[in-house]
Nucleic acid binder design. Structure first.
Length: 295
DNA sequence: CCGGACTCCTGGTTGC
DNA sequence: TGCAACCAGGAGTCCG
């Protein structure tokens, strides 16, 4: 499941190839991948062709590429959903069966390139959207679809104090809060479980009863887990995720809790369990991670 | 504000 | 072998 590290790897890989490139052709193989484009597919194609991209940007799991920034306030917004991949291909390379959108472009330095949006489950999407003020920093522009998304913990402008305040004001469970992209973005099921395991916090620990020191530990562990994944090039145990060069970037060996049910906890040796929570699996060590009172 | 249910979706796996 | 049921979950929406 692409989370912040995987999306960042895609962004970084795309940057040298598409910054300054001009779109020459667009093929839509499946219009469902344009679900978040509010106008018809023809509108998407018409506006894309001839457009020149600025450097790709990211907030949480959202990626966007400003289009002709001096002339327009548009951006190509990309979300990978559950199974999305953005692949950089030679213009004459074969098109993968699950390719939903294919974009041909010319880069003034590198010549013709092709970007393929491949997505098995079609939870991901591409869309052209309007850039608007983010509202938290003057002059900071984000696509309107991304405006409600909080800054992610790797963002230099992430406000730790504000996060702790908002977290403490919540009346909910900690994992639910971690997965709430309007509170903190970029964290999905895998890294939520990993950061909670590292912090020895139970997924259903009430946020209101989570002490400030433990919240600080958790945020630090979130950053460690994301940073480690970033350094390793993203996680994908099921090889759904490929980076922009089509190289598999998985390192499931470094997971301590996610998908480790039935295996010994790397810390205490007791068995990791998996429970259904929020319509998804939660993996944790029942010994190390227990719900605590106001401590 | 909160949480639960529901929707989108299909390849791989499991079970008979 | 063949087929159907089941599973994975990011994010948005709706409802009580």
């Amino acid at each position: 499941m692409p989370e912040l590290p995987e999306v960042e790897v895609v962004r970084a890989g795309l940057e040298p190839a598409i910054t300054g490139a001009t779109v020459t052709a667009v093929q839509i193989f499946d219009e469902r991948s344009l679900r978040r484009h509010t106008a018809p597919a023809e509108d998407f194609v018409d506006r894309m062709i001839g457009s020149t991209f600025a450097a790709p940007r990211r907030r949480g799991k959202f990626l966007w590429v400003p289009v002709d920034p001096s002339r327009t306030d548009s951006a190509l917004v990309v979300h990978l959903g559950m199974s999305g991949q953005v692949l950089l291909r030679e213009p004459d390379a074969a098109v993968d069966r699950l390719t939903r959108i294919s974009i041909d472009m010319t880069n003034p330095e590198h010549g013709p390139v092709r970007v393929d949006f491949v997505d098995q489950r079609i939870f991901g999407s591409m869309a052209l959207d309007t850039l608007v003020e983010s509202g938290d920093l003057p002059g900071d522009l984000v696509p309107s679809q991304v405006r409600h998304i909080a800054r992610d913990p790797m963002d230099p402008n992430f406000d730790d104090a504000r996060f702790f305040t908002r977290l403490a004001a919540r009346n909910t469970g900690i994992k639910r809060a971690l997965l709430d992209q309007t509170l903190i973005s970029g964290i999905g099921n895998i890294y939520a479980d990993e950061a909670l395991w590292a912090s020895r916090i139970h997924y259903d620990q009430p946020t209101s009863a989570l002490s400030r020191p433990r919240a600080k530990t958790l945020l630090a562990e979130v950053r460690l887990v994301l940073g480690k994944a970033l350094a390793e090039g993203g996680t994908s145990f099921d090889a759904q995720y490929l980076n922009v060069n089509g190289e598999s970037g998985y390192f499931s060996h470094s997971l301590n809790a996610y998908g480790q049910q039935g295996l010994p906890c790397p810390r205490c040796g007791r068995m990791i369990v998996r429970e259904q929570f929020m319509n998804r699996g939660s993996h944790f060590c029942p010994w190390c991670q227990r719900v605590r009172g106001a401590n």
